[in-house]
Design a binder for these strands. Structure first.
Length: 732
DNA sequence: CCCTACTTCGAATCA
DNA sequence: CGAAGTAGGG
């Protein structure tokens, strides 16, 4: 029994643990049940099983046995039934999925039967690309010429391209369009991003003129409304319950919000608009009610793989379950319950824990060999992992011969000192490393400010991950609105956006115009109608622009026409229109990659350029690419660096003060810290200022996540006592 | 419909 | 405390 570094009795732990008990018991039972079905590759019968599989696959091109460790091999070669793979941090998860994909194909599975679902398109492409090169390189003994390789003529290339792989959203989007006939829907719909949804909610709210609400409590903002409606759907919690538990102060408005949610939904259906939630939920609805559709999918996708399963929400789980319902459909979900950090956007960590309950015959495989971190770092993150209350048993291990340095915890007098400590370390280590090898991970983006300042002052090149996305910039959204009405003249949200650009046109006129257009069979001509003659100076040019853009040969040309019209408008509304216009170059560049409006719009919605504006610009100007990464912990998931700094380890920031009195929220914070630390390959520095103060309060205790561990795992370089002296009896 | 005074609300982010 | 967004009068 090791003692913790600091006295943890000084921390107030959530009091709602007892209420949680029934839920936790159920989860524990499901975990236990699945643990009983663990395929332990150390057992003799499983060694035999693996050997058998390999012997029967002697003709295979890829040498699976020598490329994979036994657990990875077991995961890659288990092709039937329902399987959960717990893939610890740095355990070669992507590699395993890659090899499994190739193993399936080599075993005669038709690529059309394979469905691979991920959360980002990047992940989907990576697995596909790596499987391609894997199969291609193993074919090299067949003496293929470079040309043949380049021409995509390889049979394996073709095969892999007919695998269905992508994000949940892109898969469902494809289904809605491809099966539109069977489902009785219009395939020509537009996708609303979160901002568009907010606008739409606002619009519906204004149009419906609900009975006047009490003046005592203001009606919530559109952003809050969107959040409530979306959360209600993704967590399948009725609006009433959600508001009563999470937004108690707006409880008076519950009936109106409930009505608004319904009206918003009808509005979207009437105008062929789908928000991100609809794309998945509508497919789930059809799967539940349309037997032909469900059977069609069940017969098509016989081998389903899901990546990052711990991040799935309820509709996503339902989608998977509906497709994989027959025993004959093979399902392998891969994930790490220690890394479920997205509850705030609807992810349901219970999905991965209840897998054994959902599928009573499911098998469990664990990848515990770590290829990323030194034994010392591993030792630390294993200790963190042990603090997580609920989850599958796991112990990461490494073959690395050298233990490496223990993580270091250091407290500094304030945030400036904290930033300069980090900078000093980077300067000291730089001779051995590139800047690319360093990352500073922060709980909130605000926590990176001092670090950025210090880096600037000392000429350390860096990039900040996160921030405003290219696609979210106002002028980009404006231009896209024009493109959207070209594609779907029913896109009332886009119309509204365009029309309110004009002086003297507000919500009212815009709505009237939009109605006139949709009523007139979506003809742009209605812009010229006599009833709007007063605005004709503005509307005529708009009409001509849209008509010209519609006839344009390419997407890029259409955008050119739009810009001709839009840039003068932009000049009137934004002072910095010149800088902003720079972004249009980027937009046009993106457009050249697409031949049709729908593929252009679809791609921007489902696969937006992920970089912040700063990144997109700096990648253009030929600057060196060797930079320190400053990122939020959330954005760092899945990545790794040799040297990682985690800052602001003050109780109230990490864990965040808003999670301190909720058991589940605090557990998620713990997992977040686990994600941060498990990014490190060789050096891990943990830092905290002595205090942090803002509107939200004054915090001066070291993070409980540091305090809970023993000095066996971490070197404490603390200057000041980490804990404020507290002589109160502990039971007070 | 626009502008200003005032209230409100604070984290993280993918599609 | 400060930014962002709302309400309400002009």
């Amino acid at each position: 029994m090791t003692t913790s570094i600091f006295d943890t009795r000084h921390y107030k732990y959530p009091q709602n643990f007892l209420e949680m008990k029934p839920k936790l018991t159920r989860l524990e039972q499901a975990i236990k049940k699945l643990e009983a079905n663990l395929i332990d590759t150390a057992e003799t019968k499983n060694i035999k099983l693996l050997k058998q599989r390999l012997d029967s696959g002697l003709g295979l091109k890829v040498d699976y046995a020598s490329e994979l460790n036994p657990d990875q091999l077991m995961a890659a070669t288990t092709i039937d039934g329902k399987v959960l793979v717990i893939a610890g941090a740095g355990s070669g998860k992507t590699k395993t999925l890659t090899y499994r994909t190739s193993y399936l194909l080599e075993n005669g599975v038709s690529p059309k039967e394979v469905l691979l679902l991920t959360f980002t398109r990047k992940a989907a492409n990576e697995i596909k690309d790596r499987a391609k090169s894997l199969l291609a390189s193993s074919l090299s003994n067949q003496e293929l010429s470079d040309e043949e390789l380049a021409d995509d003529k390889l049979p394996t290339d073709k095969a892999l391209n007919s695998i269905t792989s992508g994000t949940f959203h892109s898969f469902c989007n494809m289904l809605l369009r491809q099966y539109s006939g069977l489902l009785g829907i219009n395939p020509r719909f537009t996708i609303l991003d979160t901002g568009d949804s907010e606008d739409a909610i606002d619009l519906v709210h204004k149009e419906k003129k609900y009975p006047t609400q009490t003046k005592t409590q203001a009606f919530p903002r559109k952003k809050t409304l969107q959040n409530i409606i979306s959360t209600s759907r993704n967590r399948r919690v009725p609006i009433r319950d959600l508001i009563e538990s999470s937004y108690p102060d707006i409880a008076v408005h519950i009936p109106i919000i409930e009505q608004l949610a319904i009206d918003f939904h009808e509005y979207k259906r009437a105008n062929h608009l789908y928000d991100f939630d609809d794309i998945i939920s509508q497919v789930v609805r059809h799967l539940k009610t349309n037997d032909t559709f469900r059977q069609r999918l069940q017969n098509t996708y016989r081998y389903v793989m899901v990546d990052e399963y711990q991040d799935t929400n309820i509709p996503q789980k339902q989608l998977i379950d509906l497709i994989c319902e027959p025993d004959s459909v093979s399902l392998m979900v891969v994930g790490d319950d220690n890394q479920s950090i997205y509850a705030f956007r609807g992810a349901n960590y219970e999905n991965i824990l209840l897998f054994g309950e959902t599928y009573p015959n499911a098998k469990l495989i664990k990848l515990e060999q770590n290829y990323r971190s030194t034994p010392s770092v591993l030792n630390y993150i294993n200790a963190l992992s042990a603090q997580i209350t609920l989850g599958y048993q796991k112990q990461l291990y490494s073959d690395a011969p050298i233990a490496g340095d223990k993580p270091i915890f250091r407290r500094l007098s304030d945030e400036t000192k904290e930033a300069s400590y980090i900078t000093d370390k980077i300067v000291a280590l730089k001779p051995e490393y590139d800047y690319n090898d360093f990352a500073v991970l922060c709980r909130t983006s605000f926590q990176s400010n001092y670090v950025q300042l210090e880096f600037m002052a000392r000429n350390i090149p860096f990039i900040v991950v996160g921030g405003i996305k290219f696609i979210e910039r106002r002028h980009i959204k404006d231009v896209l609105a024009f493109v959207k009405v070209l594609y779907n003249p029913n896109d009332t949200i886009a119309w509204h956006r365009i029309l309110t650009l004009f002086k003297g046109v507000g919500a009212v006129t815009a709505t009237r115009l939009t109605q006139a257009i949709t009523a007139d069979n979506n003809a742009f001509e209605s812009l010229l109608a006599a009833s709007f003659a007063k605005k004709s100076d503005q509307l005529k040019p708009l009409y001509h622009t849209l008509t010209k853009a519609q006839q344009a040969e390419t997407v890029e040309a259409a955008i050119e026409h739009i810009l001709e019209f839009y840039i003068p408008v932009l000049k009137l509304i934004e002072d910095n229109w010149r800088e902003r216009s720079e972004d249009f170059r980027v937009l046009k560049n993106l457009a050249t990659e697409h031949t049709s409006l729908d593929s252009f719009l679809e791609n921007l919605a489902l696969d937006p350029p992920n970089d912040s504006v700063a990144v997109m610009e700096s990648s253009d100007d030929g600057q060196s690419n060797d930079k320190v990464t400053i990122s939020t912990i959330h954005s760092a998931k899945g990545l790794e660096w040799p040297v990682v700094f985690v800052n602001s380890l003050v109780d109230g920031i990490t864990p965040h003060h808003r999670s301190l009195d909720d058991f589940e929220a605090l557990e998620e914070e713990r997992k977040l810290f686990y994600v941060a630390c498990s990014r490190a390959k060789t050096q891990l520095y943990l830092t905290a200022p002595n205090y942090f103060s803002s509107y939200s309060g004054y915090f001066d205790m070291a993070s409980r996540f540091i305090a809970e561990l023993s000095a066996d795992e971490v070197t404490v370089e603390t200057v000041k006592s980490p804990i404020k002296k507290n002589d109160d009896p502990i039971w007070w």
